[in-house]
């Protein structure tokens, strides 16, 4: 079987200007942040970012001017860092367009794509102004219960990128701990990219196949970047680098350059 392993630069080249990109993880936890930074180094533009709970990733991409549109549920740095400042600025000054979701409505849109149906019903939403804002439709129960349900149109990312603990040479991927929304992202996107802490022999995956989150045939390319979820966590390998996040948030031009230069993928 051919190897899916490529360099970080090659992996990132699967993402083109204008693509819609679903990013795995949640807030500062197990995000594909090495790829996010590589997109900036590569000068990518006009990206659509899809994620239920982005933070650092969408903030740094907005800061670099790489984003056209955000489709997100809740956006913040989290930890004790509050709002995502460059994202906030980009929305407030209109540089980036926002499609605001509840996390579960974004998941519903991804499910519509994953399930191969034109829309996905979702519980709740009643009384929220998000429905009118996004022009979501409300349908009566066709089986006559008398209730109505909101339906979300498909969200089909061009690319899904996730950061995982382990990958095989063929691209099978697994995570230890919570999967966040990585599973549905990898089932709804046209192209799936995986960044891993390390590569392990396929015999280890064969020994515990139930731990595999994404089988190789769904994966287009994979690469290994130890520490690639920095400055966020990748349990159980490492936790949040709070000092690095603090340094990143310093509002001067040098801090982004310094941040990109001190990232693990730049150091190796």
């Amino acid at each position: 079987m051919t190897s899916k392993l490529v360099s970080l630069v090659e992996l990132t080249s699967h993402i083109q200007d204008g693509d819609s990109v679903a990013l795995g993880g949640s807030f500062l936890h197990r995000g594909p942040f090495a790829v996010v930074r590589e997109l900036i180094r590569a000068g990518r533009r006009d990206l659509e970012i899809i994620k239920q709970s982005p933070g650092y990733d969408i903030d740094v991409l907005c800061r670099a001017g790489s984003v056209r549109r955000a489709r997100a549920g809740i956006v913040a740095m989290e930890g004790n860092f509050g709002l995502a400042p460059w994202y906030r600025k980009a929305i407030e000054n209109g540089a980036v367009e926002l499609e605001e979701h509840a996390c579960a409505t974004l998941t519903a849109g991804l499910r519509a794509s994953a399930y191969g149906v034109p829309f996905q019903p979702i519980a709740g939403v009643h009384g929220s102004e998000l429905a009118a804002l996004n022009k979501w439709a409300e349908l009566p129960d066709p089986y006559g219960s008398g209730t109505t349900v909101w339906v979300i149109p498909p969200i089909r990312p061009d690319v899904a990128v996730i950061h995982v603990n382990e990958v095989t040479e063929q691209g099978d991927a697994r995570v230890f701990g919570t999967t966040h929304w990585d599973r549905i992202m990898t089932r709804s996107a046209r192209t799936v990219l995986v960044v891993a802490e390390r590569v392990v022999d396929e015999s280890e995956f064969r020994a515990r196949p139930e731990l595999t989150l994404v089988p190789h045939f769904l994966v287009d390319a994979a690469c290994v970047v130890p520490g690639g979820a920095w400055p966020g966590s990748c349990a159980p390998d490492y936790g949040i680098d709070y000092d690095a996040v603090r340094d990143y948030l310093v509002d001067d031009e040098d801090s982004l350059t310094a941040h990109l230069a001190t990232a693990p993928e730049s150091r190796s």
Partner: peptide
């Protein structure tokens, strides 16, 4: 611009 929808619109109801 605040964090946004999050769990609310689906979980509150």
């Amino acid at each position: 611009r605040l964090p946004g929808g999050g769990g609310a619109a689906v979980m509150l109801p």
